Simulated scan of single mutants.
Amino acid sequence: MQENAVLGVDISKQKFDACLLIGSKERHKVFRNDQEGFEKLVAWCNGHGAEHIHLCLEATGCYSEDIVNFMYDLGHNVSVINPAQIKAFGKSELLRNKTDKSDAAMIARFYIANKPNLWKPASREVRRLRDLYRCLQALKDDKLQQMNRLENKNVDSRCKKATLEVIATIKREIAALEKEIDEHVNNHSHLKNMVENIKTVKGVGHLTAVAVIAEMPSVYNFDNARQFTAFAGLNPGHYQSGSSVSKKSRICKIGSERIRKALYMPAIVVKNTNSYFQKFCQRLASRGKRPKVIIVALMRKLMHIFFGILKKNQPFNGSLVK
């Protein structure tokens, strides 16, 4: 039994390249990205004496979900890595060639060098909530796109009629999905409790609370609120070198764009209506911070608060806001 068997995988829609790294010896093979391919992968690893495997791959959305769930269910360790980390690691190795095969090997070496955290799957009910929420947001984007078409006053009447019919259909589906999201949350008491606790922050609505639950991993995957906030890409990034180079700090944006999008408008509402955050905003304004910078800082503050709410399973406590 090889306890140190590392499996680096570079995955795409139809297939994936695998690099099995045992000690210093690399073995490569290509498999189909489906159930049969996963089974052949495990048999191939076992054939090389690797019974317990640590799978390491980039976060690639739907393309990687099936394999990570398959390997996790078999009892193997899994690490899902931010692609930006893999890219930076490749640069540190001064790699000149980029192929699927070389990427799989690089991902395996990344694990050896960095020992990333283990991946844990979201519960079935959270995964369904995430799917419903993402579908809802996609339809809202589609509706906006179609409505923008109507801005053209010279559009042909037949085209205008078709666009209006599409918009009406999308609106019906949006209403149906919002109802289904509400029913799903109400049918699972722990989801309902989390959503209701987050909504105790005045200015944070139902869908924003749903977004936090659906798009963020469990708080128990993080050691502290800073790590939780970093997942959303809201931690500040500083650039300073010596005494003469000092650029403006910006959020790093290496994280969930969906969460940042979901929090922007609620942060504006919180700034304008929630008295608990007035001193925080006024303090930033007195330092000369621009309005948009204050909004982003408030988004970061809200993520810290959400972490505390979910970790302690308690409603919002305004007295703790500094």
Rank of each mutant, 00 (worst) to 15 (best):
Y220P: 02
N224H: 13
L234E: 14
R260V: 09
N152S: 11
K98V: 04
V166G: 01
F38D: 05
I67G: 12
G203H: 10
V9F: 03
E26F: 11
G255T: 04
E26T: 02
I174A: 06
G237A: 08
S24D: 15
S123D: 15
Q314H: 10
K161E: 08
V9A: 11
V6Y: 12
D103I: 03
L207K: 03
I107V: 11
L7C: 07
R290T: 12
N114I: 14
A162I: 14
V126T: 01
V78C: 04
K253P: 07
V78P: 06
I170M: 01
Q314V: 09
G90H: 05
I309M: 02
V293Y: 02
A232L: 02
K279P: 01
I107N: 04
H54F: 01
R109K: 14
F231C: 05
I170V: 11
L164A: 01
L150D: 12
F110G: 02
S241H: 02
R290E: 13
V201L: 05
N97H: 10
C281Q: 14
V166P: 06
N33Q: 11
I86P: 15
H76R: 10
K153H: 10
E93S: 10
W44E: 15
K179G: 08
S249T: 14
V42S: 02
V78K: 00
N235L: 15
F231A: 06
H238P: 03
H54L: 00
R109P: 11
L150Q: 12
R130K: 13
C281E: 15
L74G: 06
H206L: 07
E257R: 04
W119L: 00
E178D: 14
L177Q: 13
K29F: 13
D141T: 07
K140H: 06
D10I: 08
L191P: 03
K101T: 05
V204G: 04
L95S: 05
D34I: 08
K179P: 07
E125A: 07
V296S: 06
N274P: 11
N317P: 03
P121A: 10
V245P: 03
I81C: 05
A43W: 05
K292P: 04
Y276E: 15
K15I: 07
L94I: 15
D156Y: 07
Q282W: 08
Q145N: 14
I11Y: 01
E178V: 01
K248T: 04
L57G: 11
N117D: 12
N235G: 04
V68T: 15
N154Y: 14
N148Q: 12
I22N: 14
E196S: 14
S275F: 12
R158K: 14
N117F: 03
F89H: 01
R127D: 06
E183D: 13
F222N: 08
E196Y: 11
G61R: 06
N114E: 15
K91H: 12
E51Y: 05
A88G: 06
